[in-house]
Design a protein around this nucleic acid. Sequence first.
DNA 1: CCCTGAATAGGACTAAAGGCGGATGGCAGA
DNA 2: TCTGCCATCCGCCTTTAGTCCTATTCAGGG
Lengths: 223, 223
Amino acid sequence: MTPKKKILIVEDQGMMRRNLALLLEMEGFEVVTAENGRVGVDTARSERPDVILCDIMMPEMDGYTVVQTLREDAAFATTPFLFLTAKGEKSDIRVGMNFGADDYLTKPIVREDLLAAIEARLARAEAQGEHYRELGGTGATGNLPDFSSPAPLQQNLGLTAREAEVLLWVAQGKSNGDVSAILGCSEKTVKQHLGNIFEKLGVENRTSASLVAVEALARHSAK
Amino acid sequence: MTPKKKILIVEDQGMMRRNLALLLEMEGFEVVTAENGRVGVDTARSERPDVILCDIMMPEMDGYTVVQTLREDAAFATTPFLFLTAKGEKSDIRVGMNFGADDYLTKPIVREDLLAAIEARLARAEAQGEHYRELGGTGATGNLPDFSSPAPLQQNLGLTAREAEVLLWVAQGKSNGDVSAILGCSEKTVKQHLGNIFEKLGVENRTSASLVAVEALARHSAK
DNA sequence: CCCTGAATAGGACTAAAGGCGGATGGCAGA
DNA sequence: TCTGCCATCCGCCTTTAGTCCTATTCAGGG
């Protein structure tokens, strides 16, 4: 929502293309257009639209081929693809849907239907993204795992509460001196705990222990 | 494919329901049925089908409400939902699609269309799953990032080729001595590179540098 | 009450890490 | 050709990390 959604219109009829573009721009979408299927595929690849509206009957490359081509590309596996068709012919629509389109709109395009369909597909795509992001946890976006609690380390690695606290800070790059100051104990104590941690984790130094910790935290975020 | 796909049929007309079930079972699908919308929602939650076929006009709860209800549940955010409708009325279908359905089939149901639509939606759902799994990379499952190539470190962190190699091993917990043996150079050289790496990454020790490296590698897996 | 496990900490020591300055050779671009 | 940038390596030095051993305190369970 916050970032302007980009819509690609692939439609050979100039008037129809301009009308649609104008309508969508007035609704706050960013619009790019292509005058046939072949150009449409190229434009999709360079512009990475959030939604694609595509006519079926076009010169150079028809709509079926466009959706088929784009669906082979992992980058467009999730992009909502809507057909625009002049024909009420169910068979045409069926063919398109079976090629992996997400919806269709019959001409003449009604403004309300168009907007409702676009919003519905955007909402659906977003909901699916969230679903998979949930599955993937924070690791899915390449971010660092959650260092907010030592509990996962305690649970998953069989550490004591204090050991988990020590490791939590060590894994964030803190020195023994830092950790002792943070936890309010002697540096000797930190070293002692670290030695025990290394033994429990089967590693030989803090860097390896940190790796194990990060992995455990990531696994925990992944639920 | 390997695991039998489970299909939920929500349809109030007994004959239609049994015919569809029989047809799909003969095609090798596992089929569960529900005789109205309310039961359909319950059944979906307990059976977790891979595809849902749902009539629109039903007693107790209509098809729109079913899809609306299920889409609110994260578990069904990605489940292909196909409407079965006796009406060729476009408006009915539009309403259903706008509620988050994925496709529709008009009665009388043609065997080929039904199977093609189901296969198309299953393929699409699977492709999307793969897409997001790719985004999640190995990190999505809580595993460690890909340490097979230093290239991502070189690219994303602005390191030289050699520096990236050094960091790649350091981030895996290797000591300077180990790295020098692995790379076939002096330990002094490793230290020198590490110093440069620390400066470039804005960190003060190998553990912090490793954290940055792991994050960069995870981000790279996320494409 | 005794025993265990956890947390704490000290001393003494070795090993590793990291900083600083200097130096060489290769290689590509101005 | 000269100038950076990169990779390589040295020595010297300080700081940090890590090990081994020992010891105290405290909370719970049998």
